[in-house]
């Protein structure tokens, strides 16, 4: 192995898959071999059986759909507010000076701690779930986008100025396109965090969703179902990550070496 030396696609896939294989093998040995009690950790086979039962008999696909809709809904709302604001903050220092201290403060307010308050304000309906995701994502996106836009190479801006670009041209034809891949990367990252918020929101005062199912299963000590739910979240995360990366490759071919 050499530092930073690239590897072939085949080797990358093989290595990536083999970790999953090892992981499941370790899990199977620990549970099926009787090293861990089934009360605490179901074995992979039970997990698959429980999962199948969840989907066929308990309408778990509906729960998955509800959770995805909540994450995407809250996240899109946050992005619609945060990306433009972040771009303006990055581009115009007075805007940044106005918002930055508050956003930096708000960023550390834990979204999950708002849940009881939000239930008080918005009930236990969908708007409360969306708000949790929104609060959890919006400040993070604002700050990271502002930093990305603010750190665009100064000489590119100067080159555009020397070519006769005005304020609008600088913003629309230099800062935004230059920052776009970075912004896409930020959204990918924050979407991952949004998934943790949604589950927390669903653990409390909810009647549907993956998080709700996990809490229900706890009452029944159905660790197979709980683990199945957690794995479903992981798989969805993996898929959304993959889609994001594919979209980035398509949208920003210039940023690849």
């Amino acid at each position: 192995m050499k530092p930073l030396a690239p590897i072939s696609n085949g080797a990358r896939v093989t290595l990536g898959v083999s970790f999953f294989v090892l992981f499941f093998a370790g899990w199977a040995v620990a549970t099926l071999g009787g090293y861990v009690s089934a009360t605490f950790l179901a074995d992979p086979i039970t997990m698959v059986k429980d999962g199948w039962e969840l989907i066929t008999e308990h309408g778990f696909l509906f729960d998955i759909g509800v959770t995805i809709w909540r994450v995407v809904g809250g996240f899109v709302l946050a992005a619609l507010v945060a990306v433009p604001l972040g771009i303006l903050m990055g581009a115009y220092k007075p805007v940044e000076a106005f918002f930055e201290p508050f956003v930096s403060f708000a960023r550390y307010l834990p979204a999950s701690a708002f849940i009881p308050l939000l239930i008080l304000w918005a009930g236990i309906g969908e708007s409360q779930k969306l708000l949790v995701i929104f609060i959890g994502s919006v400040f993070q996106i604002v700050l990271m986008v502002a930093v990305t836009v603010g750190s665009i190479r100064r000489d590119l801006v100067e080159a555009a100025l020397a070519l006769g670009a005005r304020d609008r041209g600088i913003l629309g034809r230099v800062l935004i396109p230059a920052a776009a891949p970075g912004i896409a990367e930020i959204l990918r990252l924050v979407l991952g965090w949004a998934w943790t918020y949604v589950i927390v929101a669903e653990l409390i005062g909810s009647s549907s969703g993956i998080g709700h199912m996990i809490i229900d299963s706890q009452a029944l000590l159905a660790t197979g179902q709980m683990i199945f739910g957690i794995i479903v979240i992981g798989v969805i995360g993996l898929i959304s990550d993959f889609l994001f990366k594919a979209a980035n490759r398509l949208l920003f071919p210039w940023s690849l070496a």
């Binding site: 190479r153 000489d155 020397a162 070519l163 210039w254 940023s255």
Partner: peptide, 27 residues
């Protein structure tokens, strides 16, 4: 700054997200 003075910089300053043709057409 203005379009009446063309500038070529010491560092490479082509816009990486534009093609060669689009870079030339920027101004």
């Amino acid at each position: 700054p203005g379009a009446d003075r063309g500038m070529v910089f010491q560092s490479y300053t082509l816009f990486p997200w534009l093609t060669v043709a689009e870079n030339i057409a920027f101004g």
